[in-house]
Design a protein around this nucleic acid. Sequence first.
DNA 1: AGCGATACCGAAAAATTTTTCGGTATCGCT
DNA 2: AGCGATACCGAAAAATTTTTCGGTATCGCT
Lengths: 124, 124
Amino acid sequence: MYGKKTKKIKDDLDCGITVAMRVFGAKWKPCIIDAVYRGYNRPSEIHRQVPEASARVLDIQLSELLELGVVTRETGEGFPLYSVYQLTELGESIVPIVRQLNKWGDTYKEQVREKLAEAYMDME
Amino acid sequence: MYGKKTKKIKDDLDCGITVAMRVFGAKWKPCIIDAVYRGYNRPSEIHRQVPEASARVLDIQLSELLELGVVTRETGEGFPLYSVYQLTELGESIVPIVRQLNKWGDTYKEQVREKLAEAYMDME
DNA sequence: AGCGATACCGAAAAATTTTTCGGTATCGCT
DNA sequence: AGCGATACCGAAAAATTTTTCGGTATCGCT
């Protein structure tokens, strides 16, 4: 699929953090999970929720989530092309974490923005 | 510093998830935060806790965390080189999330491993 | 017929992150 | 003097991720 699942640098799947990062620690995966959770189940809907990402990445990451068993896909035969993604139980278990990420970011975004601005200045 | 903080592709810092991912969504940052939280405050100690990472990345990511205000650094003058990193309040606020990541990964690691093995087989 | 929406996919390019390698520098120990 | 530990850093290489571009294919509407 997408890239290759055989990475040259193997992850240490004994470490919980590493496992979690492997499953949903990608630029758009938490957003995708959140969107599906909020009821945006079709690729085009998800894309409209996360317009900053290209449709292609969403596609790729959706396939990865599908492979990892985070979501399921139901494809309608023929007609107006139709695909619906749903969270699996595994996927649901990630939702609270994603919600927390979102909450954390909302709470500290100002602070983070300032720090980033400072850092930017320090190097002119 | 490390790389460049001026990314060509700007992050949308209005989205909480994106902010959180920007701050600690890197391969080793959650592990570093966890290590510091658990009392491993010196670079060499942290490295011993996360031996899979090169000392260099830890270095780089530690500087980023420092810049973002997630940790503080205290450097001893001269003598046996000495640096101690501590979590700031901002850093402490990330700890529960990191713990959850770790817990999640511990809970689902078997399942994830299976899925990865399957995916690997499907492409032979 | 032509356009836009839908859902995908491959391949190359670009961006970004991580690793490797080689340095600097100090101290303590042998 | 030489070695290992400590803490760092720059630069190039390698790995990985994300983006861009161009396709395929179907249906409905004009």
